[in-house]
């Protein structure tokens, strides 16, 4: 898949906080009965992880899994493996009502890294982003300004943020504006 390109080819912005377009990421939407043993097994086989609790995200050597809604998880895998894993899960869930779709190409992913990254997001997300309210392992689906987005933390002061690909350029501009030098509230 050498001719596959991400929305901004890894563009970066260095401000008070660093914004990076993360390149192609494998993402698989899996809808079904999250309590089913068959589904749990399929997810475990795919990413080596259990189904996370409500609004939690988990990462491991094989990938990640995020709780999206009571009947949906998002699997985070290598881009090139997404089609194969989607097919594997589909096979594994034969006979059980489910839906599994490779949505990797429909998304843009950004890294928001550095001290103040919480504040960059808090300029657009109506979410309590203080350390006692949001930390590693949490995922939040909300909005950033006018855009639908989901985000989680991978380490201290580093967020991964996902939005639709068609607005990836707008999101990058938004984040870069919010992250420019000298603009952080220094509150959180």
């Amino acid at each position: 898949m050498s001719n596959a390109v991400s929305i901004l080819n890894g563009a970066t912005f260095n401000g008070a906080v660093k914004i990076t377009e993360a390149g192609l990421r494998g993402m698989i939407t899996l809808r079904g009965d999250l309590s089913s043993a068959q589904l749990k097994a399929a997810v475990s086989a795919a990413v080596g992880l259990d189904i996370p609790a409500q609004r939690k995200v988990d990462h491991g050597p094989m990938g990640g899994v995020a709780w999206m809604s009571p009947d949906e998880v998002l699997l985070l895998v290598e881009y090139d493996k997404a089609d194969a894993i989607t097919a594997d899960i589909s096979n594994a869930l034969t006979g059980e009502h489910h839906m599994v779709v490779n949505v990797s190409d429909a998304r843009a992913v950004f890294l928001v890294a550095g001290k103040g990254s919480r504040e960059v997001l808090a300029k657009g997300a109506p979410v309590d982003l203080s350390p006692d309210a949001f930390g590693i392992g949490d995922i939040r689906r909300s909005r950033i300004g006018q855009l639908v987005a989901a985000f989680w933390m991978t380490e201290d002061e580093t967020f991964e943020l996902v939005c639709f690909r068609s607005v990836g350029a707008f999101m990058f501009d938004w984040l870069s504006t919010a992250a420019r030098e000298g603009s952080l509230p220094e509150y959180l």
């Binding site: 409500q54 609004r55 809604s69 979410v127 939040r140």
Partner: peptide
């Protein structure tokens, strides 16, 4: 009640 989030109306 589905995802447990308490959020403001704009969501």
């Amino acid at each position: 009640p589905n995802c447990g989030v308490t959020a403001e109306e704009t969501e």
